[in-house]
Amino acid sequence: MVVFICHLYAFAIYGILVIFYEIFRLAEMQSDRSVRKLLRNLSIAGAQAILPVAIFLYFSPMSSAHVVSQIQFGNFKRKLEALSFMFGNYNQGIDLICYVAIAVFIGFMLGRGRIMIARPMLAALVFLCGVFVIMPAVVFSSSSADRRLIVAIALVAVSSLNLSVRSWRELLAAAVTIGSVYLLQVGIAQHSWAAYEPRLRNYLSAFQKVKEGSNVAVAVDPNASWFPINVRGVPSLLVLQRNAFPSQQFLWRGQNPVALSEKFERMAEAAPWNEIYERLLTIYEARNRKELDELVKGSLADFQYLLVIHESPTTPSLADLGLDRIAYASDFDLYRLR
């Protein structure tokens, strides 16, 4: 059972909302104010979080000392970029249009006094925004931990609003805004995946040339794109398509605490996807066939195939050095090693 720290976000945010609600409720009471009663109510409400926290601490590999120690802070620029994660879709221009549309709609409704926000929720939102500012980028090896909070804050903000529509113009404005944002986001996602589909077909076709149960070393260009599709995850399809073991299957081992046998652990450590690519590029630029043979017989000795994913102008074309290339496309080469 694997429980990521981000899986506990719901309980943490729910707890924060309950705390602020109870505090405001206590402050608004004219009589019978009791801090003891407040603490009792909060304790009862918090009891439901005991089970998931216990599972995380005692059963999840994510709570191991090695994983827990993986905490990293990003720079402030990265925090600002995280604001786009309320959409974070496939096209920044479309995302900007959606932001502007929503901002104009909210401004229009605020000007007419049609939007109200619950006071306890406002305080909780301010608190959550403060948490976002100080939150590390990586918490217990869960990457983008702070960015994940942005979506939760947006959902809490929406749920705290009281929208009152009193005319057909306001109703039309709400329908046009929500409908436009939805259609734009769905449309650009569909377009991006449709544009990527030919590339994916090339990969799947090449994977059919891999013998079932084989081991495939994967070298990925560090400059390979992350959006709209993260090509680093494509080699994992070898597991489904050919029951093969790709060395890149575990991009970040802390996030995939799967126990490997000694053999596969050694193979994964021997062929880190980014380091292998840099070494192959150096070998190709030097036209060093001897070093290539040493790599194939050394670090890649347990692999039958090598998949090189590239997007940079200069790519390691190992076929020029005599390696058996059995499939290729504009962004990858598949070689048979033995």
Rank of each mutant, 00 (worst) to 15 (best):
E81V: 12
P228V: 05
Q185C: 12
R325L: 12
Q248E: 10
E28I: 03
M267P: 00
R147S: 09
S143E: 14
V151K: 05
E28R: 15
T315A: 14
R147Q: 14
M86L: 15
E294Y: 02
S160G: 08
K211Q: 12
C129E: 07
I283P: 15
L295R: 00
A47V: 07
L8Q: 01
F264C: 00
F127Q: 06
A206N: 01
V138G: 14
I16G: 02
L251N: 10
E275F: 10
M109D: 00
S205D: 12
A49R: 01
A154G: 14
A329Y: 08
R289N: 09
F59H: 13
A319F: 10
I326G: 00
V133Y: 12
E269R: 11
Y277N: 04
S60C: 05
Y196W: 04
G93D: 06
K263Y: 07
I5Y: 02
E294C: 07
N215M: 01
S236Q: 12
V139Y: 13
N215Q: 11
R336G: 06
R40W: 07
M116F: 11
R169S: 11
V176R: 08
N41E: 15
L183C: 04
A189K: 11
R279D: 00
W193E: 09
Y335A: 11
R166N: 14
M135G: 07
L80V: 11
K211Y: 00
I44P: 13
K297S: 09
W168A: 14
L251T: 07
M86F: 15
N89Y: 06
F59L: 15
A175T: 10
E170L: 08
S214N: 06
F11Y: 14
S63N: 05
D331F: 06
E212Q: 11
Y182G: 06
A49I: 00
R199C: 01
M1T: 13
A194L: 07
S141N: 04
V2W: 08
V308R: 05
G107S: 00
L281Q: 03
R325T: 03
I50D: 05
S192Y: 01
A12M: 14
V18A: 15
L184S: 07
R253Q: 13
E265D: 04
E170S: 06
A286C: 06
S192M: 05
P235W: 07
R40A: 15
I16H: 11
S141I: 04
V151C: 03
L200G: 00
D95Q: 00
I13K: 09
L125A: 06
V35L: 06
D320Q: 11
N288F: 02
C98E: 07
P61K: 00
A286T: 00
K209W: 04
L306C: 04
V258E: 09
R266A: 06
M1Y: 09
Y328D: 15
S236W: 08
E275P: 08
E28M: 13
D293I: 01
W226K: 07
E197S: 01
S205Q: 08
Q185M: 11
K290V: 01
V126W: 02
